[in-house]
Design a protein around this nucleic acid. Structure first.
Lengths: 340, 340
DNA sequence: CCCTCCAATCGAACCGTTTCGATTCTCCCT
DNA sequence: AGGGAGAATCGAAACGGTTCGATTGGAGGG
């Protein structure tokens, strides 16, 4: 690879002049600018990014760290991030957090390869993030709350209003006339699942339903996990009207289990999810759920990051509203009677 | 941030010794190693990746450049890449190719920020890739053939056998007893779509069906595009048995259009897709399709890249087999009669 | 004709590592 | 005691840019 020195030699100017041609073209005379340009073309010179990053001590790159890159869910998020980053002249790179410690995306955090990070990956421990976050590397987390022991000047958060979502789901199911519920939760240490759980119970309390009678099964946010959780509920022979699953994947798994047990959805039991993934619209029956504005989350996260990069932080945590999406999986028994 | 010099000063050793502690610990005595380690911990020293990259002239990072990061389709691919990269001690980063020229992922290619690239993004022109690919930056393309004018020592390709897929699809539809076909193609400049098209027609020729009578509509690989394409076919009043769409998205769009026109799938007309995206299994009726082994593609691409990085190239292009996945959207009329 | 000023260009330091050859120190052998 | 081997450590030169203060040259004013 040709270096800036090669260009300088060929164009018979100093290195600094070549640099100037790129950074402040108006500062160099037309004739030399042309000469430099020719040399650049001829040598196919391309500036070395790592050298520049080293010198100016920033990379103009921000990282989006995800558990895995699957799902149209994440893609919306990244789209939001990219849109804002692009306007700011920043490059966005995404990294899944693969198996080996130290190998994968953590290297981006660890070795000053990015100027900021957006994190949505429960497998990266908060403790670790606290170590990495600093003035020159602010972090926005999307998957955990800012508690008193997870708190730093350089960490902020953006989240959908999970509690509200749980509440909306609960109210919707109540409005549809259901009374006997079960909840399929995510992993015990998932803050998101916990908040959804809480909102759900709040709605039930308000309707004076005794939540102590409600079975809760903890699963893992996967389709298969939801299926197994539903299997557990069915085996126990609970009398149930409606299932609220902490995400759509598990809700879809639950529907499969129900189908296999010849329980009709929503005639015998209603199912409600959370996230509004693309699949929710296509399964049969289509899945009622809570829509998370992932694109907005991405945009907001990037804006917060920008604020942190410029030292103009604008508060710790931003909560974005969610919306109820009613589809067929929670059709009311009454409505059905009215129709038939 | 503390630098290696700070550590050296605090531990009262030279900079090179500190470096040695990391790279070849056995070469430094236990006592100093301990002292250095303490200094590192105390200062929270972390090596600067860009400085190292500059010095050793490689980044140990490979980029996966995608059109957008959407779809479980891509995620499988990335999973395959990551698995291999991880074993090789390489970091994988993914970048969507957002709007602004020069801003986005191209910077990774342009500025020597990665050691190799895997490209699946038609919006990056082949011409451009030819400019970037070189010994120190080999490229594996996943979305285009290696033609005589797009050919370089440093570019190789991995692809699913699109032609075979088209052929399998054609044969399957013929086996099911369908005879009057339409093809919904991708963009005219999509090589993949073209190959699927070719394979499809080869199957029809073999069955002595006159392909001249077969309407072809070119669309854009999106669900909505498929819907509009199907609309066009329906308006023209073609008599049709079966639709073959060049990807699942368009096939699903086509099914929607058919439903809106009260044409039953597969009773009135069969629909077949290509890709085997996750959704295909869930739509109603479930979509017959051709399965592309994206995970394998990712792994193979990464292995090829590794070969190129080590100078042990193993041929230009690798074609991976595809498989037929039969579901409900292509149930045979005869079978149906047999059942009813 | 000389001085001043500004535009154009240059030289050199610096960013934080790695690496290689040189140096010092220790210990052992004859 | 002298010499040599080998381990431990060090110094300094890269890597390829950016940036700032210094230098040069020519135009314009008095």
């Amino acid at each position: 690879m040709a270096t800036i020195r090669d260009v300088a030699r060929l164009a018979d100017v100093s290195v600094s002049t070549v640099s100037l041609v790129f950074s402040q073209p108006h500062r160099v005379s037309e004739s030399t600018r042309l000469r430099v340009q020719q040399a650049v073309d001829h040598l196919e010179y391309r500036p070395n990014g790592t050298a520049r990053d080293l010198r100016v001590r920033k990379t103009n790159t921000i990282g989006v760290l995800l558990h895995n890159l699957s799902g149209p869910f994440y893609s919306e998020l990244i789209r939001g991030v990219e849109e804002v980053a692009d306007m700011l002249g920043l490059t966005t790179i995404a990294a899944g957090c693969s198996s080996h410690q130290g190998q994968g995306s953590v290297r981006l955090l660890h070795e000053a390869r990015i100027d900021g990070a957006i994190v949505l990956d429960p497998s990266i421990e908060s403790k670790e993030l606290l170590r990495y976050a600093r003035e020159s590397l602010p972090v926005v987390v999307l998957d955990r709350p800012l508690t008193h022991d997870f708190h730093s000047e350089y960490i902020s958060a953006v989240a959908a209003d999970h509690e509200l979502g749980g509440y909306l789901a609960g109210n919707h199911l109540l409005d549809q006339g259901f009374r006997r519920f079960a909840f399929i939760a995510g992993p015990v240490d998932s803050g998101d699942s916990h908040l959804r759980h809480r909102g759900f119970f709040r709605a039930l309390h308000r309707a004076e339903i005794d939540t102590v009678t409600i079975p809760v099964v903890y699963s893992d946010f996967t389709e298969n996990g939801g299926k197994r959780a539903m299997g557990t509920l069915l085996e126990q022979g609970w009398k149930l009207d409606a299932i609220f699953a902490a995400n759509d994947e598990m809700a879809i798994g639950a529907m499969q289990a129900l189908e296999e047990h010849h329980v009709s959805v929503p005639n015998d039991v209603a199912v409600m999810g959370f996230d509004d993934i693309r699949l929710a619209r296509y399964v049969t029956p289509s899945l009622s759920t809570i829509h998370q504005p992932m694109y907005e989350v991405g945009k907001t996260a990037m804006k917060k990051l920008e604020g942190a990069l410029n030292g103009t932080s604008d508060g710790d945590v931003e909560i974005l509203p969610v919306t109820l999406v009613t589809r067929s999986s929670t059709l009311a028994p009454l409505a059905k009677e009215g129709i038939s």
